[in-house]
Design a protein around this nucleic acid. Structure first.
Length: 565
RNA sequence: UCGGGGAUCGUCUAAUGGCAGGACGCCAGACUCUGGAUCUGGCUAUCAAGGUUCGAAUCCUUGUCCCCGAACCA
């Protein structure tokens, strides 16, 4: 990078302020070491992406390191399926963790030894209260707690009992190890919190080696300290767990003293961001899977056609602060448009075909027009598109009785077929129901390529495909999954606000021939429509299926909406 | 009625006692073989009331509103 001293760099957010101050105070020997600590109990979503970008990005900015650590202290909720998907998603986003992927379960032995240390110091005890009794003894916001009758057990008795817990002598839920702090503490987290519970459950990594598992509040600070984490960044709801985090760091013989910093998690309009509810969508088949392109999961966004670059740029723009906030989903859409606008090759595709016969075009003739793959970037090259006597245009591009500012085709009007020629509508054909099913047009042979030699201007340009050469394709049009800004907000069941039109599958779309062999995952701009990608699962060369990633900005529909077309 | 946080354009976010700035959005215009892109110009904000100060978004006081917290979840 530069020879600039780290602490002289202007801070991008309050976390960097803190790091700069720590660096200036000579803490941690000048090191910056963060970690991303997902629990492997679900798929990563766009909210996690913010945290990933923050943790990995901050470390990188300071020339530090960032660990990937699976927080797997609750075997009943966790699964290897999730650890695999999480690792894949982090890599896809473009980040490389320091060393091997780590697991809190790697530290179970050390965490256990720390617990014995607390017991020996008289700072932890085995408690036989039931969960209900524990809760009762804890008191509540307004009522202080009272000491457990087991609080005064001797060190010897506690050590014996704890070892027998570990040895599997007691039933699930019959005892816990608790920190001995203060049952009168105004912060409920400090009222003798449980450190270990008995769970005779199979763990995805440690198997049956353990039947007691540490709680998050206890295992997390130890894991951080063991790894030499300097700044342990988490979300706001852990703010009042920080005293307990610090208590653990202070009362245990640990090699490092990490510091917890909390920031506001990402909320997005029209988007659900809770793992529990996302799981529900999957389990209840309200979406096809975790990677359904309508899901806010990273695997869903990837399949939808989002790029890692766009997601990182989005995270950057959203910023980092402590205000509860809900970002407009439009900002995410802006990020992917911005990225794809410069990189996606253009192509012509007609979603809802309307047949157009060019009456004065010679039967059997084919013109191959050359079209740039990107109008502003010649380095993407060109391709040839076939033109013949019958073409399809978009149904939306014709109106029999158009409003005033209509630039597209209508009876008697002339438009340009993109990169091909000018055509004028001479006649329309309707079916029994009075719907327009076919247009008759004439072309101006002098306009070959798209410009008239007489210099006449044509306002409208339509995309099109040659009927004889176009390939049929499946195109899935995705829209937001919910109809309300805050699904599941208030007392509404989020399932009642699902958008019934979140997926529309078109099976009669026609694409230009060059698109037929698109590689799965390849992204294109279908001109005048939006960005699309060949589906990574269902699209095969020869039988393509495209997902709409996002629509192009649409000035016309905006006019219509404003009521002034 | 307890503890912990937070209130700046419509939405995010900066300004760390010294010009309230940026991005998205929106509006108007230019340009255009995508009603796309691009380019101009514009719009809109310091929760309230007092105080300190030459000067307050920032410091103090009082109040209001919002979020989180009572799993042997993370």
């Amino acid at each position: 990078m530069t020879d600039e001293k780290p602490e002289s760099r202007p801070a991008a957010n309050f976390i960097e302020d803190i790091i700069n101050a720590d660096l200036a105070a000579g803490k941690n020997g000048g090191r910056v070491h963060t970690r991303f600590p997902p629990e492997p109990n679900g798929y990563l979503h766009i909210g996690h992406a913010k945290s990933i970008c923050l943790n990995f990005g901050t470390a990188a900015k300071y020339g530090g390191k960032c660990n990937l650590r699976f927080d797997d202290t609750n075997p009943t909720a966790e699964d290897v399926e999730y650890v695999d998907s999480i690792a894949e998603d982090v890599r896809w986003l473009g980040f490389q963790w320091h060393g091997e992927a780590l697991y809190a379960s790697d530290y179970f032995q050390k965490i256990y030894e720390c617990a014995e240390h607390l017991v020996r110091e008289g700072k932890a005890y085995v408690c036989d209260l039931t969960a209900e009794q524990t809760s009762e003894y804890r008191g509540n916001f307004y009522k202080s707690g009272k000491d457990s009758p087991f609080r005064s057990r001797t060190v010897e008795e506690n050590l014996d009992l704890f070892r027998r817990m570990r040895a599997g002598e007691f039933a699930d839920g019959s005892r816990v190890l608790r920190a001995k702090i203060d049952m009168q503490h105004p912060n409920l987290n400090m009222r003798d919190p449980p450190l270990y519970r008995i769970k005779k459950a199979h763990h995805h990594r440690t198997g049956d080696a353990w039947c007691i598992y540490p709680m998050y509040d206890y295992a997390h600070p130890i894991s951080d300290a063991l790894e030499g984490i300097t700044h342990s960044i988490c979300t706001l709801e852990f703010e009042d767990h920080r005293p307990l985090y610090d208590w653990c760091i202070q009362n245990l013989p640990l090699p490092y003293q990490p510091r917890q910093i909390e920031f506001a998690r990402l909320n997005l309009t029209y988007t659900l961001m809770s793992k529990r509810r996302l799981l529900q969508l999957v389990n209840e088949k309200l979406v096809s899977s975790w990677n359904d392109p309508r899901m806010p999961t990273l695997s869903g966004l990837r399949r939808r056609g989002y790029t890692p670059e766009a997601i990182r740029a989005f995270a950057e723009r959203v910023g980092v602060a402590k205000n509860d906030s809900t970002v407009d989903v439009g900002l995410l859409e802006f990020a992917i448009r911005e990225d794809l606008e410069k990189r996606a090759p253009r192509a012509l595709a007609v979603l809802r075909p309307l047949k157009v016969a060019i009456d004065n075009y010679p039967e059997g003739q084919v013109d191959w027009f050359e079209a740039p793959n990107h109008p502003d970037d010649p380095s993407l090259g060109t391709r040839k598109i076939p033109f013949s006597k019958v073409v399809y245009i978009e149904q939306d591009d014709f109106m029999e009785n158009p409003p005033k500012k209509w630039f597209r085709l209508s009876p008697g009007a002339e438009i340009r077929l993109r990169y091909a020629c000018l055509i004028r509508c001479t006649d329309i054909v309707k079916n029994d129901k009075g719907e327009v099913v076919e247009l008759h047009c004439t072309w101006d042979p002098a306009s070959r390529g798209g410009d008239a030699p007489d210099g006449r201007r044509v306002k409208g340009t339509s995309h099109w495909v040659s009927a004889a050469h176009a390939v049929k394709a499946t195109v899935r049009l995705y829209d937001r999954l919910f109809t309300v800004e805050n699904p599941g907000g208030g007392d509404k069941d989020f399932r009642s606000t699902l958008n019934p039109a979140s997926l529309e599958t078109l099976t009669d779309a026609r694409i230009e021939p060059s698109l037929a062999e698109a590689a799965p995952g390849a992204r294109f701009q279908f001109e005048r429509l939006g960005y699309f990608c060949a589906d990574a699962v269902d699209s095969k060369p020869g039988t393509p299926a495209f997902n709409r990633t996002v629509q192009l900005k649409d000035g016309w529909s905006k006019l219509v909406k404003a009521g002034k077309p």
